[in-house]
């Protein structure tokens, strides 16, 4: 590993130069742009980044980044990334996945990576559709979705990715969108600072198979009433000039009300550091039309990272046990034949 001072990078230093082959107009371009910009500003040597992906449109991501990378097996990126992080905890290991890759075929690995709190930074591009296989419904598609594989509409209800992450015990959970470049960069920066697993859902448009998937969130007019930005210590205000706010009724039911200068004791004041995850879980379930969709950091709590515990056990064994190979191979009882 280089001991030289970290060079000052520009965004283009993280571009592999490979021709990017996403469809023109794909939301992935702006995500790539944001990640390259954010990585350049992180102060981490470029050779210490490893980006691991599965299969799908999002998973072509590593090829476009001039870092170490693996384009892996469908749904299994967290497994490869876990091995890398355990073997080399000093590396910055990022996982890029999609709603199909991460929540359908790879759901098991995703939840276990978060349960263990492996220090992986997971970016899930959620476009609510299978793009690379030409437009089948995904585990985040709305019920009733008419697609190539569901001509009469899908009948299964969708996952909320952040609820899945929180249910699995994720210690850092955030949501942002492809169109909100600055916010996206800020979420990437925040995830990088978190020790342990960090999960970011990136709302992403597929202009070919699911155009306008998040139009009501990213549209200039629509977002006013449909997005609430989470800010630490601040009440959840949204709408034109922040005229509306979210409260929690005594029965535990959230409700959108008119803002009355903060006088309502039931106002939800955002605290991403709450150790207990139920408020974050509640936020993860809010969605239009009844509620605005929360964007920002839902949860950021400290917990031991899996790789730290893993190496702590190794260190303790190295300190307290013999590493004499001859002794090990002989075992507790031997005999000699002359």
């Amino acid at each position: 590993m280089s001991s030289d001072p970290v060079p000052t990078y520009k965004k283009k230093d993280f571009s592999s130069g490979l021709e990017v082959r996403w469809c023109p107009g794909c939301g992935d371009y702006s995500i790539l742009n944001a990640v390259q910009t954010a990585f350049a500003a992180m102060g981490v040597p470029r050779e210490n980044f490893v980006i691991v992906s599965g299969i799908g449109c999002s998973s072509r991501f590593p090829y476009y980044m001039d870092t170490y990378g693996i384009h892996g097996v469908h749904g299994r990126a967290p497994t490869l990334a876990t091995g890398i992080k355990l073997a080399r905890p000093e590396l910055d290991v990022w996982v890029v996945t999609g709603d199909g890759d991460g929540l359908a075929i790879g759901g098991n690995h995703l939840i276990h990576a978060m349960r263990r709190n492996v220090g992986l930074k997971i970016l899930m591009f959620n476009n609510r559709i299978y793009g690379l296989t030409k437009g089948q419904y995904s585990p985040t598609s709305e019920q009733g979705k008419v697609t190539a594989s569901t001509p009469l509409g899908s009948i299964d209800p969708p996952f909320q990715p952040l609820s899945v992450a929180l249910g699995a015990g994720a210690t850092f959970v955030a949501r942002t969108a492809d169109r909100f470049g600055k916010h996206l960069q800020e979420m990437i920066r925040r995830a990088a600072c978190h020790r342990g697993a960090a999960f970011i859902e990136v709302l992403q448009n597929c202009n070919i198979f699911n155009n306008g998937a998040w139009g009501q969130i990213t549209g200039k007019q629509e977002r006013i009433d449909n997005v609430v930005y989470l800010e630490q210590g601040q009440p959840l205000r949204f709408g034109e000039e922040g005229r509306r706010a979210l409260i929690l009724e005594e029965c535990g039911q959230p409700r959108a009300v008119e803002w009355n200068d903060g006088g309502d004791p039931r106002l939800i004041v955002h605290d991403e550091t709450r150790p207990e995850p139920s408020m974050a879980f509640l936020l993860s379930h809010l969605a239009p039309p009844e509620f605005p969709l929360p964007l920002g950091v839902l949860r950021d709590v400290p917990a031991p990272a899996f790789e730290d515990l893993h190496h702590e056990q190794i260190r303790r064994a190295e300190q307290s046990e013999s590493n004499d190979l001859a002794e090990l191979l002989a075992g507790p009882s031997t005999w000699t034949i002359e």
Partner: peptide, 22 residues
Amino acid sequence: ATFQAEDEIAAVGAALGASFAG
């Protein structure tokens, strides 16, 4: 070092990731 994975696929995936890492 040992790692008990969540399934057989994760077990070989983590092993392959470790090999990539050196």
